[in-house]
Write a protein that binds this DNA or RNA. Structure first.
Lengths: 230, 230
DNA sequence: AGGCGCTTGTGAAGACGTGCACAAATCGCG
DNA sequence: CGCGATTTGTGCACGTCTTCACAAGCGCCT
């Protein structure tokens, strides 16, 4: 379940604050979800809470980390050391949560050789050789969109079966390869949509049932051009 | 609907390639979704295509941009100019998709005054003054987790009602304020989970075993390629 | 030992999202 | 002018996710 990482983060935070046990209510609020949902999620993984007491924080952390496969520190290959890739390479949130950036790649020869956070940027053509040395589990694509598909193909070719894609495009990969996409601009656009919706609602207090009533009269009307033919 | 930005991106890509109309099938594959889903989404916003022909690319772009509130270029305030914030400040994907980074803030006096991409970093205490000048629509938090809640409070205090949070923590905000969260490490953990699941399945083809390794049906894998959040 | 308060785990109902399949509508062509 | 090819818009059914509400279980206090 996609919420487990969020629970894990909340649990680590609780553990740092000295909590040894936590109720579903407490953990749920720390993770920002409903308590019933949390209990159901935890029960799905054969969980270990004690009725009347709650969950053992340490034990639950172990459990979730095992299910997420974080007991082994996975090696990540990052392709594209531009603006975003540079930041990702230096992001300590990866190392602190069970991942190791094992190699950096870029197609621009001007960037090859640069050292970031103790790692030297290599040319993307060296990917097969490096992948043979390190056991790359996850590939991160932080290239411009036009290059992303080719990079994805190269990653798949060297055996990577999980890809995190920051390029604004859809990747086509063979079955069995997981792709997750993060598009920063899309997040902003979703917020913009909500802004627009809120603004429209305050302007037009009458709120209909349909979710997307953000279409103020004008456009909706101009659209329905005389459909009555025959 | 959270998929509209993805459709918009696909449409822009099609427009650049000279397409004037596009069928739901074509647009759906370009956006990586089911065609029926796409048609239902588009019908929701009252937008219309022509039966037998498809959708007019230009018109549809206008429609979606209007619904998303992108007809006005929204001003974004970015708080936290560390590793990630630095990259976000220089990310051209924002400007190219209707957003304008209007101001940069940081609490570290050592960073105040630094110039990034033509913008000077100001101290976060100046937020009220700057917000009075610029009309800030969206706040982006790229600070360490411990500082995030305070920054969120400050943003809300100056009237920001949409926040994009990159800090790994849950923010509590008053009703009416929208928060979207992006946690890069969580994305990796989800991929790690799939890796682990795939490894367990190939290693243990028998369906028996503990609930932890088996993770039967209950943990259905959500469709891989989709924007986070949703 | 027994009762009481607290918390987990779960059954059931409802909301929601998804995808199929088909009618309605439009265009092009003979 | 009519017909067939094509594509949208949508009713319907299905599966998933969410939430409520409550029984079962555990510890503590008397």
């Amino acid at each position: 379940m996609a919420r487990l990482p969020e629970y894990l983060r909340a649990l680590h935070s609780l553990a740092e604050n000295g909590h040894e046990t936590v109720s579903s209510e407490g953990l749920a609020s720390a993770a920002g979800v409903n308590s019933a949902k949390l209990r159901k999620d935890l029960s799905q993984l054969g969980s270990y809470g004690t009725r009347g007491v709650g969950y053992d924080v340490g034990l639950l952390i172990e459990q979730i980390e095992y299910v997420l496969g974080l007991t082994q520190r996975r090696a990540v290959a990052l392709v594209g050391v531009g603006n975003l890739g540079h930041a990702l390479a230096g992001y300590d949130g990866f190392a602190s949560r069970g991942f190791r950036i094992a190699a950096l790649f870029d197609a621009d020869s001007g960037r090859v050789g640069e050292e970031i956070n103790g790692l030297v940027v290599r040319h993307v053509d060296e990917l097969p050789r490096v992948a043979a040395e390190e056991s790359i589990a996850i590939g991160v694509i932080a290239t411009p969109a036009p290059a992303a598909q080719q990079v994805a193909d190269q990653l798949v070719a060297v055996g990577v079966t999980s890809i995190l894609n920051f390029a604004p495009c859809v990747l086509s990969v063979p079955a069995g390869v997981d792709v997750r996409k993060v598009d920063l601009a899309i997040e902003l656009q979703i917020l913009s949509f909500h802004e627009h919706r809120k603004a429209s609602l305050t302007a037009l207090p009458t709120t209909g049932g349909s979710a997307l009533t953000a279409l103020p009269g004008g456009l909706a009307v101009t659209e329905s051009q005389e459909a009555i033919g025959t």
